[in-house]
Design a protein around this nucleic acid. Structure first.
Lengths: 154, 154
DNA sequence: GTTGAAACACGGAACCC
DNA sequence: GGGTTCCGTGTTTCAAC
């Protein structure tokens, strides 16, 4: 299969920037801004989707409104690397775990975890995470403040 | 000011789950699924937005299509905590930095960084990050594989 | 790139229970 | 309060040009 070459021009960038900021931005408002028809914007979007660049569109929830105010990163040491896939399977069942990576460096697995408060975090760490077979120990970094949260720049 | 109590019932959950999955899901398709009118869905959405639960909606880009294939976490040690805000200001100017946190634990600042490849990552670390005033040293964890990436569960 | 038409989204008003 | 319908304007989506 031949790959489609992906040429993103200035109009595509404007379209994407608007939609990255707000996925429900009216296509026609973008059309008026760049001076082409709404249908043309739509065709460009379909091309960008077909290229795989647009992975999807999501509503973003504010966890604080639901009482989830503690964000933390946890590095997990495994006592045997072979326990990796079993541990990941268990991590998927813990709803507080919102990211999980297999990483180079000190840790075998590195996760991002969202809890109501420090007590909830402690409970998830001591009861859920530490009891996963193969988990030797963990190191936790609580995010006191997040200053940057963005996507790849165009 | 009295806070609005936030009661999320089953219908709200269905609406949110659909829109978290795809922010451009037609309201009427959700309406048909849950068996109420489109106007009612719309009213519920306005209420959820007013509560602050819905932080926004975003298009999600696939960095790999743009050639960005190396995701890493970097823990930053500062030689004086007072250099914190100046360092963060500089980090915001580095487009490869997509998340930045002020954390408890070993590091002063903890960032997530997205680069084209390992060479690009090395360049950003050695040229951009290490030259920020106050940065003593860094520890890098490259994500070899990401298994979980989701939002808070409802 | 364009137009045009059908389906859909949004917002207000009136109404029911 | 939350739900319904009806309606007008603007938007999305599609095929055809």
């Amino acid at each position: 299969m031949k790959e489609k070459s992906l040429h993103i021009d200035g109009i595509d960038k404007i379209i994407l920037k608007k939609l990255i900021d707000d996925a429900r931005t009216p296509i026609l408002s973008i059309a008026r801004e760049v001076g082409i028809s709404g249908a043309a914007i739509h065709q460009r979007l379909r091309k960008l989707e077909a290229s795989g660049l647009i992975a999807g569109s999501k509503f973003v929830l504010n966890p604080k409104v639901l009482g989830y105010k503690t964000l933390a990163f946890v590095g997990i040491f495994l006592d045997a690397a072979s326990k990796n896939s079993a541990a990941i399977k268990r991590l998927k069942e813990i709803p507080e775990v919102i990211e999980s990576h297999y990483t180079t460096g000190n840790y075998a697995i590195f996760i991002k975890i969202l809890c109501r408060d420090n007590e909830h975090l402690m409970n998830v760490l001591n009861v859920e995470i530490q009891n996963i077979k193969g988990v030797a120990r963990t190191e936790t970094f609580i995010s006191l403040d997040q200053h940057i949260d963005r996507q790849i720049s165009l």
